[in-house]
Design a protein around this nucleic acid. Structure first.
Lengths: 96, 96
DNA sequence: TAAATATATGAACAAGTATTCATATATTAT
DNA sequence: ATAATATATGAATACTTGTTCATATATTTA
């Protein structure tokens, strides 16, 4: 399983995107379905600014996708890789 | 998928353990099999001290396990959750 | 056009983290 | 016992990161 330094960095970046409780909670909400920034902010009791900053990182890692509708922006999980990583992690934390 | 704040933190901690290129490379070496600290240090071109510090974190997250033999300590991956997380992440980075 | 709403972003600060260096502990060899 | 080897650890420093605050952009409403 030789790993180039580049891929090691990319992998680390990917996991970094999931390495914060706020972002994990964002993911867990988005698993239920699409949500706007303010709905996320409400649900997480965070400011919209903080949520927006976090969503930016998740977007850059292609973990979430944005869809603009009027002045709202709705976010969804980008693909089900994310769900799998999330639930495998949860599995390790709960049992394992 | 409601997530308690505690579990969100634990999940974030787990992903944090994989959120650094050095640690990812440690994991990728251990996928091949058991290795001593100095062998890891050689393979990664890091000091043994730095490797040891990183292994501590991986150990605390129960991602690796230590086995002492004489004055050497051999590390292995704790279970195959780790391998699954690793390869799913790699999958996302490479394709996805 | 002006005001209001939703989101995004830059700067700044606080908190966290990875590495280095020095030192400590444990084990083996002389 | 002393020296050498393998690993671990505490302190210090440099770097990274999350949040807040102020401001900017885009869209809708009056």
């Amino acid at each position: 399983m030789k790993l180039t330094e580049l891929k090691a960095m990319q992998l680390a970046e990917l996991f970094s995107a999931l390495s914060d409780a706020s972002r994990v909670r964002i993911i867990s909400l988005l698993i239920e379905g699409e949500m706007s920034v303010s709905a996320l902010a409400d649900g997480l009791k965070m400011t919209e600014s903080a949520v927006s900053h976090q969503l930016r990182g998740l977007r850059q890692m292609r973990l979430v996708r944005a869809r603009k509708e009027g002045r709202q922006v709705f976010y969804t999980l980008d693909d089900d890789h994310v769900v799998k990583l999330y639930s495998m992690g949860l599995d390790h934390v709960e049992h394992g």
